[in-house]
Amino acid sequence: MLTVENLTKTYRSGDKALHGVSFSLPKGQVVGLIGPSGAGKSTLIRCVNRLVEPTSGRVLLNDIDLTTLNRPALRRARRRIGMIFQEYALVERLTVMENVLSGRLGYVSFWRSWMRRFPGTDIANAFRLLDRVGLEGRADSRADELSGGQRQRVGIARALAQEPELLLVDEPTASLDPKTSRQILRLLTEVCAERGLPAIINIHDVVLAQQFSQRIIGLRAGEVVFDGPPSDLDNAALTRIYGEEDWSAMRKSAAEDAEAELEQSHRMAGLA
């Protein structure tokens, strides 16, 4: 269970990225965090695991306040927070297996990790995760040999290898085509459901957010302006978040995308 209370981030340049953000996330809930670029979505996610230091406010994960932890304690807390990145952020020149195992770094000593001598249970678990995300047999490939969708699957496996209590997902589909985006989001929501894992998915595609999350939080200029189920996200709410726009036209084109994908998968099934 994650609780964010009154979180504020002011950058040294004086820019206010977040202003009094509060919400809480029960176990197993997948939240879509939407808002225009520059609204502070990325900052909010990074304030939770303190890749960005919040200026004030509290972040409670299972009743531990992350904002007051010292370095070693913060490292221990980060082990339980999986993070998935926009540009995958895999270590490109390492193998897929090493990338997945890097999720275990917080649990093993430096020398063990340097010699690549991870415990057998970690290795077996990594193989199982690779199977789960659909990358069986790719353990020895180098990360930069994979396609975008495959890389993001490795990113998911790496985050799950941490055995996290929370997933932070930063624009997971920004570098992917629409079809792969859906596949990745479907995979994410499935693994969250399997493990009862809460997740914050920061996403700029409203339709995808509505389709794949149980709750939507809308940010505008660092403040929460919408918080509710996807079905409540009507044109008025969207206008509050993004400003004026032709929302029904956008929905229509997204629906066509989804339909085309469905049709294609039927055709593929017919061929097989």
Binding site: G120, I123, A124, A139
Partner: peptide, 13 residues
Amino acid sequence: MSDYPTHWRRPPQ
């Protein structure tokens, strides 16, 4: 569940 290998060696690069 435990039929996954517990050893893995980095292939030479």
